[in-house]
Structures are given as structure tokens and as C-alpha cells.
Simulated assay, not measured.
Amino acid sequence: MTSVALGPTDQLDPRLLEHRRELTGYCYRMLGSSFDAEDAVQETMVRAWRSLDGFEGRSALRSWLYRIATNVCLDSLNGRNRRALPMDLAGDPYPPVPASLAGRRPPTAWIEPVLDRQVLPEDADPAEQAVARESIRLAFVAALQHLPPRQRAVLILREVLRWKADEVAGLLDTTVASVNSALQRARSTLADLDARPAPRSLDSDDRELLAKYLDAFERYDIEAFVQLLHEDATQHMPPFEMWLRGAADIGTWMRGPGSECANSRVLPVWANGSPAVAQYRPRAGGGHEPWGLHVLEIEDGKVAHISSFLDLDSGLFVKLGLPAAFD
């Protein structure tokens, strides 16, 4: 990544760069977009670099960077509509027919995925890793977007990053009482949305299920694929508004409108704290091109939900650092 103001980011002070990953995770939770988060962190680094000589060390460098990042995110969110997932917008599932693809929104309307390696700490203990993983789950990130920006910052800092109330008050230039009040309101909103994260471990059964998913999809064995899904499993496919409910309807879709995905190649990845699949669809003229990143929610040994983020003309794979082709 390159900054117009600074040149390559590897020319920045190493003290700034060592906080880049955790700041990206913070900005992602705030903004609901991995690409906006990268831009926000880049702007944070630019501002910090320009002011580093005047940084007097009255607070820890990490706290100072979070203050800058918070201000960048709050500025970015000013006047912006919240990002969502298709199931948040449509009350009823769509039928598995081509006409269901009629509704489509721009990329800025949707929550975007993030790869675990972009935002999760490498050296945290297992308990901290579990909390961090749950705090980037798609449902939780989507729920955060319902909160006013300052409440969102308070909840992330207090409950995800475990900052003390007085530390958050100092960062936001407010009082401890105001922080506690904002936290209570944020908690109430998330409770109404039933979106509080509950840490869970990724066990060998999840990895085995992912392997079966990869195998069934690559062979395009829809009968085997459907057997991996809960009976009431759901799937949505941003940028389209449509979503499906039921393993049977998902299977019908794959045999019908989705049949062009036959003979795809797939790669296992980890995104939004969950197993995920990068799919490359056959390209006219040969080879395979990026098509969709499928983030899987697994419950009780089966897939409960599939978030299929389609690349289309968004450049999703390149922006996430995934291979631009499958050779």
C-alpha cells in the first residue's frame, strides 16, 4: 500500500507500523468495511507521522493512535448510511429463481468481509483470540452498525478491547459517566438485536466440515453439498438483495441459476472469525477467475448460514490480497 503523502508505508516509523493490524481490526468493526478500514488506518498513520515529532508521550503511543483512528472513523461515518447484510433488509426469503437477482445495491450498502489475518492478533492467548474472533463475526459487525458512531466506539473499546472507562473517557474527551451511559445504551440495543458475541473455539470438526464443503463444491455434487447444511440454513449474496432459506432452496438455486459455478476451483481461508472458501469460477476462454468469498457459519456440526460475497466488478479478491486468478 502506498500513501500519496508519504510514499510506501514501510518507510513509516516502525513504532507506528507495529500497531497497524489491531488498528485495522478496530476500524473494521467501526466501519463495517475492510477497505474503508484500510483507508482509515492509512489516514491515521499519515496524521500520526506528521505529528510524531510533537508527541510528548503524555499518553502511551497506542492510546494516541487509537484517539487518531477514532476521530478518523467518526469523520468517515458522519452523514453516512449504515452498512447492512441482505437478510437485515428483506423480511422474507426470495424464491430460488433468476428473477430474484433483480435487486442490486452498490458495494457501499453492504457489510464487507475481512480476512482473519488482516485483523486478528498473532500472539494473543487462546482466550483473547476467541474473543477477537467473535468480535469480527459478520452478525456482530452488522449489529454494531445499528449503534450511533460514538456508542459504537465506546462498546468496542470497553467490551472488545477491554479498555477502562476512564481511558475511554480520556480518548473521547468526555466523562466516565457519559461513557458508562453510552455503554448501557449500546448494550441494550445489541440485546434487542440478539447480537452479543459468545466466544467459541474452532475445533477439528469445523475443519473437517470445511474440507467436506470444499470437496462437494469443487465436484459440484449438490446432493452431498446439501447434506452439509442445516435444514433451515440461509444464504445471501451481496451485492444482490436476495437471500435464500432452506437447504432445499439453496440446492435448487445451485442446480439452476447457480449452475455456472460448476467446475469451479476453491481455496480454504479464514474470514470474519469463521471458515471460508474463496471460489474461482471457470472463465470463458480457459482458466478460472475470482467469483465469490463464502463465509460459513457453523452450528452443531453443520453449516447454518453462507454469506457469499461476489467479486463481480468490485475487485474484492485483489483488495483482500487473495490471488487474482486460479492457475
Rank of each mutant, 00 (worst) to 15 (best):
M1P: 15
A5D: 12
L6C: 06
G7H: 14
P14N: 05
P14D: 07
P14S: 08
E18I: 10
R20K: 06
Y28Q: 02
G32I: 06
A48Q: 01
W49N: 09
R50Y: 13
R62Q: 14
S63P: 00
R67F: 08
I68Y: 06
D75H: 13
S76N: 06
S76K: 10
R80T: 10
A84G: 03
G91I: 09
P93M: 02
P96Q: 05
P96L: 03
V97W: 09
P98M: 07
P98V: 08
A99G: 05
A102L: 12
R104A: 11
P107C: 06
V114S: 01
P121L: 06
A143E: 07
L144Y: 09
V154M: 09
L172P: 08
D173N: 15
T174Y: 03
A182W: 12
R196W: 15
R200F: 12
S201L: 11
E208Y: 10
E208F: 11
L209C: 08
Y220Q: 02
A224L: 02
D232I: 02
M237R: 05
P238R: 02
P239S: 13
W243N: 04
A248T: 13
I250A: 03
G251P: 04
G251I: 00
W253Q: 04
P268N: 05
S274C: 14
Y280K: 00
Y280N: 00
L293V: 11
H294T: 08
V295L: 05
L296A: 13
I298W: 05
S307P: 07
F309R: 01
